[in-house]
Structures are given as C-alpha cells and as structure tokens.
Design a protein around this nucleic acid. Structure first.
Lengths: 194, 194
DNA sequence: GCCCCTAGATCGAATGTTCGTTCGGATGAA
DNA sequence: TTCATCCGAACGAACATTCGATCTAGGGGC
C-alpha cells in the first residue's frame, strides 16, 4: 500500500510521543496543534492525515499508553502466582517505570482525571487494575487478606505505590523509587494482609 | 474609598467558585474566560477588574483552596495528640470533604500535577502535609512507626486515603467514603505501625 | 423628602492573537 | 509519469485582553 519509502509509522510514533509528553506537561486543553508540530517535527498536514482531529489523536494516545502499561505488567506475570507476588510485581513495575519512562507513568497517573476525553475508559477500570482485583478477590477467599471489600483492599495496596510514584514525579521525593520498592510492597501488604 | 454599596466580594467569590469548578472539570488550559463569564454570571470586564489576567485568577484560586483545606484540617486538631489520632483526623477530613465538597477535594488532589501555574507551591509540600510530616517524625522517634524514612511513612499512610478519594471522585467507588473512613485509617495505620 | 451629580463599578463590543482544521500544490519513490 | 504522501499558507472560529460607554449608589443642594 505504502508508496513513500519514509515510513509513516515512524512519523506517527513521533507525533504520539511528542503529544503525550505535552499532554502530561500542560493537560489536553493546554496543548495546541502548532505546539505538537513544533515538538514532533511533523507538519500540520501530516498529523491531520494520520488523525481525524485533536480528539482522535488524544484517544489514540490514551489507548496506546494503557495498552503499553498493560503489556508490560502482563509480561511480568507467570500463571498461578501467589497474590502477594502479583502485588509485588505491580509495585516493581510502577517503580521502574517512574524512573525509566516518567512520561508513560505520568500519563497513567495524572491524565485519567479531569482531562476527560469522550469514549475512553478511566484508567482505574482498565485491564491491569481489573487483573489486580481478580487476584485480590482470590486473596480474600483464601483468607490471606483481611479486608472484606476487594475494592478497598485494592486501593489500599495500590494507593501506597501510586502515591509514591506521584510524589517522585512531582519532585517531592528525592529517592529513586527502585530503592524503596521493597519497602512500598511491605507497607502495602501490611495494610491489607490478614 | 468605596462608594458603591454592592460588595464586589460577592462577585469575586462567584467567579472563584465557578472557575474552580471549571478548572477541575477541564483543566487550566481547557477553561476560557468566556466560559467563566457564562458560568459565574459576572462580566468579562468585572473579572479583569478583580484579576490581572487568567493566571492571577488561577493563582488566587490555588492559594485560597489550599488555605481552605489547611484551615479545615487545623480546626480539627487539638494540641498534643497521639500520632495515630492526627492521621485518623486527616482521613476523616478527606472522606467528609470528598462527599460534601468534591470540587474542593478534586482541586486538592488533581490540580497539583501538570496544570502547573507559575509561582505556586505543589500541594504536597503545603502546610497540612508538612504538619502531618512533623507528627510522623515524632511517631518514628517514639517507636510507634516502623518506617525509617518519614516521607515513606507519610506517603504510605496518606496514599491509601488519597487513592480512595480519587477513585470515589472518578466514580469508580460506589461506597460513600464516610462509610469506610475507619477502615481506611486501620489499613493506613497497619501499613506503617511498628 | 426629592432630585440631580459624580465617580467608581460594571458592562460587552472591539482588537489583535492564536487556535483547529482544510486544501491546493509540492515532493519523490516506483 | 504517476499518485500516495506530505507540506504550510490560508480560513473562520474562538481566545485573552482592552477600553469607552453605561450604570448606579451615595452625597449635597433645595
């Protein structure tokens, strides 16, 4: 299909990465197409040939980012793990991503609220969080977890990890999260264990 | 000095409340002055007579909101309380505000990140959070709290409460937070206690 | 009490700018 | 040469901000 040798995928990717960075920096409403043109090096016309409008670009970025996080999480899981191990891997992933790909992590944590784009599901009800919840349900059934409500158990465990990532990315925490990943897991597990 | 009896304070307050609601709904960049005019019922000219520009309005809203939360928190504290009691009161305040004044609470939780306005301190380094930290330091010194680092202790405790508020306001949690306030405190305290 | 007068408060049309989006032409691989 | 791809000037809409016109409360003269 493609005639041009310059691969459009490469340009699309440049647009998405640049726009995602701008979105987490300034919020959806604070980002203009001209600023995306400047940041990505891709022309207005090209951007509009890839995406119907600014909102479709935002939707694409949203879905792609959630997929990316989901894939990274699933890759770390082996079938049939103890609940605590699944939770620990969640914390480890968030800690590593916070240091290595803060734009992805900021998007996951900050863009869900308020910057509501139509037709996208809020991040807390996406795959990785649903996966976590099914494991937590199992933990409650097997008596490993104290909370009766799996939603409360889930937010209590993840709240600690997520708050740490938020504070680290806001520049309030000086320690790299990879150094306190273990401690965050212990605190979270203590919060909900029987 | 003033000749006019109609108090501008009332209009200023209408502008601030309407704009704050819009800011948490759409983010700073997504809110236009015309939309504030429509939502507040105050004219463009009046708004610009109260505030130098849109950014000064945002700064005023920010400072006023942080002050409001801070005052509400301090009011609940009596001098010389156990650490766990201070933490419990923080959770209770957040839970009640989430139900009673979600706009204030959303502002506190969501507007700190990304929507960075120049010359305002991030919310996590404001008065109520610093106050919490000094109590936590005391808890570590007296051996009530297990964590060595008071920042990690603070985020581990508050992370649970804050995450609950976020999920509730995103419509993911069905239970009113006032019903699980006690449980959130218990989970948070278990996360950090000796 | 009544009526103008004044000056600050308020208004919204006007201004220049930037935005999102379009489209006719340029480009270059096949 | 052909045509999918890409470019950026151009367009109307919406933006932030300004400013001269309008309004109104409160004072002073009667």
């Amino acid at each position: 299909m493609k005639k041009r040798s310059i691969n459009p995928e490469e340009k699309i990717s440049k647009v998405i990465l640049a726009a995602r960075r701008l979105f987490v920096e300034r919020g959806f409403g604070g980002v203009s197409i001209p600023s995306i043109v400047k940041a990505s090096g891709v022309s207005t016309g090209a951007i509009y040939s890839y995406f119907k409008d600014k909102e479709e670009l935002a939707r694409t970025i949203h879905n792609q980012t959630v997929d990316e996080f989901n894939t990274l999480f699933q890759q770390r899981l082996e079938g049939d793990e103890p609940v605590s191990s699944v939770l620990k891997k969640f914390t480890e992933l968030v800690c590593e991503l916070t240091e290595d790909d803060p734009v992805l992590m900021k998007y996951m944590l900050f863009m869900s609220h308020g910057n509501n784009i139509a037709d996208v599901s809020p991040i807390c009800s996406t795959e990785p969080f649903r996966l976590l919840q099914s494991h937590l349900r199992r933990g409650i059934e097997t008596g490993q977890i104290r909370c009766k409500d799996f939603m409360v158990a889930g937010l209590s465990y993840t709240g600690i990890t997520i708050r740490a990532a938020e504070l680290r990315m806001d520049g309030v925490l000086d320690l790299p999260l990879t150094e306190i990943s273990e401690e965050l897991f212990i605190n979270g597990w203590n919060a909900i264990k029987m």
